[in-house]
Design a protein around this nucleic acid. Structure first.
Lengths: 155, 155
DNA sequence: AAAAATCCCATGATATACCATAGGCATAAA
DNA sequence: TTTATGCCTATGGTATATCATGGGATTTTT
């Protein structure tokens, strides 16, 4: 039995005419072992779909409860947005989930999608948008940490 | 049972046409005893592949979770970059792992590779590139710490 | 009834598991 | 010291299982 439940890797999958996508096999294995369910919602910050185990949202709710800012407007808004948007995603015997119109539209996904692991969470992107986003992030990270630059890369 | 799990030594192995490489026996022993799995990803800093136990990434995920800004941009970026690139590497009964095209290309590896121990992590290099890198590192160290010079070596 | 969602089967591609061989290193034997 | 023996590792090849994906049938919803 595995000890860790981390979503990793970047997987490209097709979305068929009915809006079905194969959840990557690795992700399915996690869901199965964790005995929890996948929950998806529109990312608050990016044009992509975000997914995680229901456990994580449970933890989020808990943290909010215990937080000092229990009545803060900000947290209220955040929880509203997330929990109001989130939806459990079941998958069929071949491991496909159905993405709703709302989600697909938010991420601008039509016929193909990229799953990007984020540890406890994962994201689903329009492949082209992800490519740009990845480049942006790489540039950003290297800018903040110039010492990380590849030796010899004069860039 | 051993208490420490450190990757050490420098091992040269062949990569076959399918991208398979034998994980050095010592490394395999660590994986087995730690009851964790190997995870590989493109190094952020060098043209090489980096590997570690999944536990290490688990720890990273934990730190992220416990940090205050659950929704911070910076964390988002980092997790995307690291977990999006990482991949669990299982090995077959003879101890080989499969390196993806993406990884091989990043490290410029074709038919042979060098495993370099780095303690909690290890790296996989193109042998020629590693040779140069090692020389660079040696020179760097000597430059910064002249006192390390072999006694008798006149400056 | 129409539309949508869910389920099930079939298929090709690909990664994974397994089997076989050869070479090296260390210990045991001479 | 030299030779023989056996185990372990690396490596090549092959078979098998798994996965992504298309299409159709069945059920549920409205």
């Amino acid at each position: 039995m595995r000890k860790t439940f981390l979503f990793m890797d970047t997987i490209f999958n097709k979305v068929d005419a009915k809006g079905r996508v194969s959840l990557p096999a690795d992700y399915r294995a996690i869901v199965k072992e964790a005995a929890s369910e996948i929950v998806c919602y529109r990312s608050l910050t990016s044009p992509c779909i975000e997914g995680c185990l229901e456990d994580l949202l449970e933890k989020l709710a808990q943290d909010m409860e215990n937080s000092l800012d229990f009545f803060s407007q900000e947290q209220d808004d955040l929880t509203n947005l997330i929990f109001g948007d989130a939806k459990r995603q079941t998958f069929d015997s071949t491991g496909r989930i159905m993405l709703s119109e709302k989600l697909l539209k938010h991420a601008d996904i039509t016929d193909c999608a990229v799953f990007v692991g984020k540890g406890r969470k994962f994201q689903i992107w329009n492949p082209e948008n992800w490519k740009k986003e990845e480049e942006r992030i790489r540039a950003e990270v290297l800018k903040k940490r110039p010492s990380l630059k590849t030796p010899g890369e004069a860039k």
